[in-house]
Each structure stands twice: as C-alpha cells, then as structure tokens.
Simulated assay, not measured.
Amino acid sequence: MYSIVAVCTGNICRSPMAEFALRRAFEAAGLAGHVRVDSAGVSDEELGNPVDPRAGELMRRAGLDASRHAAQVFDPVRFADRDLVLALDVVHWRRLRTLAPDEAAAAKVHLLREFDPAVAGEERSGLGIYDPWYGGPEDFETTYGMIAAAVPGVVRAVARELGTARDAAQDAAQDAGRA
C-alpha cells in the first residue's frame, strides 16, 4: 500500500482539503485499494479539533465529507511508513525536512504544488499554499483551487510509481481534482 500524508499547520484547513481531494481522485482513478491518504499538522494547537467550519462547508459543496476528521500532529516516526509527505506551504516543507531522521526520509517531503504543471519549474518559495484561516470564504476557494490543481499530478506520479499509469486513470484523476 502506497502511503501519503498531507501536512499543514494545525490540520484543520489545508491538509484535510488535500487529504479528501486526493482520496476522491485515487478512488476515481481506480487506485483506492492501493493508496492510503491521511493528514496531519506540524503544530499541536488544534489537536483533536474538527475541520474548520469554512473548510468543511467548502468540502461539503465539493462532495467531500470531512465530518469525522479530527486534527492530528505529524509524528516523525510516520516517515517510516509514508512514501510521500506533502507539505502545503514552504514553512511546513522546511519543518518536515528538519524533523526527518535521515536523508531518505527528507527526500519523501515535497510541496503539494510541485505536482501542479501550471507552476512547474517555479522557485520553491513560490509554491506554498497560504493559510485561508485568516480570510473569508474566497480565501478558502482560492486555497482549494490550488490544491485541486495539484491533485491530478500527484495521482499521475503515484500511478507511475505503482506501475499502473493508464490514460483512463489519469483522466479520472484530472476530473476528480477539478470537482
């Protein structure tokens, strides 16, 4: 089973949006039985809390049910059983690489937007997804749009790694990521 964790600050906005969008995309690509996705935060300030109500509403409108989500903290021991660690912002990427016990673990850490072909080749500093928590509904929409744009690229990369890349799976993942 290929294992992915999406990581943001408190695990109540960005990383749950990424987790649930990725799950749906892997289901649509026929890879749900081969890929496990969860999420966590680098901070314990929201530990156990549900998804932010604004993120929850946006996900409901997108057909994603995060009602049972409870924020958790990224524990460095998780590097051992994760194949891909997706940081939602540059500060998370840095923190996760600092937490990595060795270079092999650090190499698993990527920014989610590295998988968005529209920003391929941009400097790492420009690939973060800002925290919508401080804004309004439009900030959550923008954030979700950035996440959704990267989801098909993650699915394609994982499918290639699993040796199951097919045009149908890629098309399904693209459609699911846009939803």
Rank of each mutant, 00 (worst) to 15 (best):
R124Y: 00
D139Q: 08
E123D: 14
A157M: 03
A159S: 14
E122G: 08
P152E: 01
V155I: 07
P132K: 11
R160A: 13
Y134T: 12
E123Q: 12
V151Q: 08
I147H: 11
A120S: 09
T142R: 12
P132G: 11
G126I: 00
R156S: 12
G126W: 00
G128S: 02
G128T: 03
A157V: 02
E123M: 06
I129D: 02
E138D: 12
P137T: 08
V158K: 04
I129N: 06
T143P: 08
E141D: 13
F140L: 02
W133Y: 15
T142N: 02
V154F: 14
M146V: 02
Y134D: 11
V154G: 12
P137R: 13
Y144I: 01
W133K: 09
G136Q: 14
M146H: 11
V154C: 12
R160H: 13
R156H: 08
E141Q: 12
A120G: 08
T143M: 15
R124W: 00
P132C: 09
V158S: 05
Y134P: 14
A149Y: 13
R156G: 01
A157N: 10
G145Y: 01
G128D: 06
A150S: 14
P132W: 10
A150M: 10
V158R: 07
E122P: 04
R160M: 11
V151M: 08
A149I: 11
T143K: 13
F140M: 06
T143E: 05
A120M: 00
R124N: 01
W133F: 15
V154W: 11
D139W: 10
S125K: 10
G153S: 04
T142M: 01
V155C: 09
